Computed example of a mutant assay.
Amino acid sequence: MDKDRVAGSAKQTKGSVKEAIGKITGDSKIQAEGSSEKIAGKAQNAVGGIKDTMRDATKPR
């Protein structure tokens, strides 16, 4: 598993928590930060997935 997948998943989780806290407290700035952090985490996780796929495809069998 690529380190980007791990970091992306962590960032996605952190963003979800931040977004939920923003919704609960009514703080739209925190909610927006959480949402963008969650999206960035999804993208980073996808990059890690691509790296894993490429690494697996180039391994000798």
Score class of each variant (00 low, 15 high):
residue 1 M to W: 08
residue 1 M to E: 04
residue 2 D to Q: 02
residue 2 D to M: 01
residue 3 K to H: 03
residue 3 K to M: 04
residue 3 K to G: 01
residue 3 K to Y: 06
residue 4 D to R: 11
residue 5 R to P: 01
residue 5 R to S: 07
residue 5 R to H: 06
residue 6 V to R: 03
residue 6 V to C: 00
residue 6 V to K: 10
residue 6 V to Q: 02
residue 6 V to P: 01
residue 7 A to H: 07
residue 8 G to M: 00
residue 8 G to T: 00
residue 8 G to V: 02
residue 8 G to I: 00
residue 9 S to Y: 12
residue 9 S to L: 06
residue 9 S to V: 10
residue 9 S to G: 13
residue 10 A to L: 03
residue 10 A to I: 03
residue 10 A to K: 06
residue 10 A to P: 03
residue 11 K to Y: 00
residue 11 K to T: 03
residue 12 Q to F: 08
residue 12 Q to E: 08
residue 12 Q to D: 13
residue 13 T to M: 04
residue 13 T to E: 07
residue 13 T to P: 03
residue 13 T to C: 06
residue 14 K to M: 11
residue 14 K to Q: 07
residue 14 K to C: 10
residue 14 K to D: 04
residue 15 G to T: 02
residue 16 S to Q: 05
residue 16 S to D: 04
residue 16 S to V: 05
residue 16 S to G: 09
residue 17 V to K: 08
residue 18 K to Q: 11
residue 18 K to R: 04
residue 18 K to P: 01
residue 18 K to V: 02
residue 18 K to M: 05
residue 19 E to N: 02
residue 19 E to T: 00
residue 20 A to V: 05
residue 20 A to C: 02
residue 21 I to G: 06
residue 21 I to E: 06
residue 22 G to K: 10
residue 23 K to W: 11
residue 23 K to I: 11
residue 24 I to R: 10
residue 24 I to V: 09
residue 25 T to I: 13
residue 25 T to R: 15
residue 25 T to C: 15
residue 25 T to W: 15
residue 26 G to Y: 01
residue 26 G to Q: 01
residue 27 D to N: 15
residue 27 D to H: 11
residue 28 S to Q: 14
residue 29 K to A: 11
residue 29 K to E: 14
residue 29 K to F: 13
residue 30 I to A: 11
residue 31 Q to V: 04
residue 32 A to L: 09
residue 32 A to I: 13
residue 32 A to Q: 15
residue 34 G to H: 04
residue 34 G to A: 07
residue 34 G to R: 02
residue 35 S to L: 06
residue 36 S to E: 14
residue 36 S to I: 13
residue 36 S to N: 13
residue 36 S to P: 14
residue 37 E to D: 09
residue 37 E to R: 12
residue 37 E to S: 15
residue 37 E to Y: 09
residue 37 E to F: 08
residue 37 E to N: 10
residue 38 K to L: 04
residue 38 K to E: 06
residue 39 I to W: 12
residue 39 I to G: 10
residue 40 A to F: 01
residue 41 G to K: 00
residue 41 G to Y: 00
residue 43 A to H: 09
residue 43 A to N: 04
residue 43 A to V: 14
residue 45 N to R: 08
residue 48 G to N: 00
residue 48 G to F: 00
residue 48 G to Q: 00
residue 49 G to V: 15
residue 50 I to E: 06
residue 50 I to S: 07
residue 50 I to L: 09
residue 51 K to V: 12
residue 51 K to G: 02
residue 52 D to Q: 05
residue 52 D to S: 11
residue 53 T to W: 11
residue 54 M to T: 13
residue 54 M to H: 15
residue 55 R to H: 13
residue 55 R to Y: 13
residue 56 D to W: 08
residue 57 A to H: 04
residue 57 A to N: 07
residue 57 A to L: 04
residue 58 T to S: 11
residue 58 T to E: 09
residue 59 K to N: 09
residue 59 K to Y: 11
residue 59 K to I: 08
residue 60 P to M: 13
residue 60 P to N: 15
residue 60 P to R: 08
residue 61 R to W: 15
residue 61 R to G: 13
